[in-house]
Simulated scan of single mutants.
Amino acid sequence: MAGVITEEERTARSQRARDAAVAAATALGLDASEATVLYDVFSVVVDLAPSPVVARIPVVVPRGTTSAGFQRTELDVSRWMASRGAPTVVPSGLVPAEPVERDGFTMTFWEKVEGVLPNDYDAVKRMPAVARLHSILADYPGRTGFFPGMQGYVDLAFDDLEGREDLLPAADLARARAEWAALSPAIASPSAFARMFPGVPVQVVHGDAPYYNLIETADSVLYSDYEHVGVAPVEWDLAHTGEEAISAYDAAAADLGLRAVDTGVLRAMERLRDLQVVACLALVPQLPLLVDGLSPSLEAWRATEPWQDRKAPSA
């Protein structure tokens, strides 16, 4: 594919991010002499050993967005969650809880969680934790965006995919644009959403598959990754989890005094998530492994009826 980063270039990018994290940590008084890269996809995650601190450095960022704003929200929400006694990953107390810029990267520093168990990504099992998260976030007093990261990003991504048949066939892009035109007005503002889905409330939600972003140890299950926290219906967090998971969520929500899932809104949120996946193809030049990772979701989307041929359903 034209203009796609090579594996050697990706490895070098990861090393530069690690070096920037080590330099920033050292300047903040941490000993990071044994630092190692733990993870490298959209962000490079660095264990700043021997200090009990982990750095998170975004390296693949959609055009039209910046990391610092999302990072600041993530830090604020995690601290607020901790203040409420919620089990959560927290910013490191050894350095200021704010984004740090170094050598072209913007990063945040987190308290290292020891003894992390493999994630089984079982949505059904984890739905009670998601419902509890929603019950907590409903009271979050800070300012967040409405569907943050979606407005602007999708349009720019589709523009970047224009003429890139190596990434997305023209017919798929035309369909995605039509579906986006039909659904995007609903997420332009809370009032616009209320017009399309009257009576369905919105609140602060996690924004990025919270069941997937739980960190489990032998002693606890921690909420994490608040980078995309914003105002939306709870269905935004529940898209494509499956009927059994939705039933599990509804049962837990009822126990917590929360509303049940609106099936019409859920279908709309699932289609918007599909379009988010399509838009992610614009990031393939920065992250080639997305081709294989996105393929099942793209095939599932292609197998559905185009959204513009029908009205958004109601529950």
Rank of each mutant, 00 (worst) to 15 (best):
T26R: 11
A188D: 05
R10C: 04
G104H: 00
V277K: 00
M107C: 06
A192I: 00
T6R: 02
A176T: 03
D274C: 08
V113W: 02
P169E: 09
A192T: 03
F42C: 10
F193Q: 07
S191M: 02
D250L: 09
E98C: 12
D255L: 09
T65C: 01
E34G: 07
G149Q: 01
R177Q: 14
E34M: 11
D208I: 09
L168M: 13
S297W: 14
D159M: 04
L94Y: 08
A279I: 01
F193C: 05
H228N: 15
Y223A: 15
T36W: 05
G29N: 11
D139A: 11
D120N: 15
H206K: 12
L258N: 04
Q71L: 13
V291P: 00
N213A: 11
R10Y: 07
R175T: 07
V90M: 12
E8D: 13
L287D: 11
R259V: 07
V53F: 04
L287Y: 02
H134R: 10
E235Q: 02
A131P: 07
G69E: 06
L161H: 11
Y140I: 02
E235Y: 03
D255R: 14
V113C: 07
E162G: 01
G93W: 03
A97T: 07
S191F: 00
R259M: 06
P118T: 08
E243A: 15
A268W: 01
T106F: 10
V41G: 11
R175A: 05
L75C: 09
G85N: 05
L30H: 07
G163R: 04
Y153Q: 12
S220G: 13
N213W: 06
V231W: 01
P296F: 12
P185D: 03
A232S: 11
A194Q: 03
V54T: 10
L294P: 05
T108K: 14
E162S: 03
S51E: 05
I187Q: 04
L272S: 12
Y211K: 00
M1P: 03
S295N: 11
S247G: 15
V100H: 08
S189H: 11
E162P: 00
G264W: 01
A17C: 08
A157Q: 04
L168I: 11
L294Q: 10
D120L: 04
E305K: 15
S314Q: 13
A282G: 06
V204I: 13
Q203D: 11
E243Y: 13
S78N: 14
G242W: 15
R102E: 15
V130P: 07
F70Y: 14
A2L: 13
L266Y: 03
G199V: 10
Q308D: 15
Q71R: 07
S33G: 14
L238M: 05
L94S: 13
P285T: 09
V277C: 13
P62N: 08
S43E: 12
A12H: 04
E243H: 15
L48D: 00
L283W: 06
V59I: 08
P288A: 13
Y226M: 15
M196I: 06
L117W: 12
D122Q: 04
P52L: 13
G149E: 12
A23H: 06
A245V: 07
E114F: 11
V265C: 08
A170I: 01
V116C: 06
E227T: 14
R267A: 14
T88L: 08
I187N: 04
D309R: 12
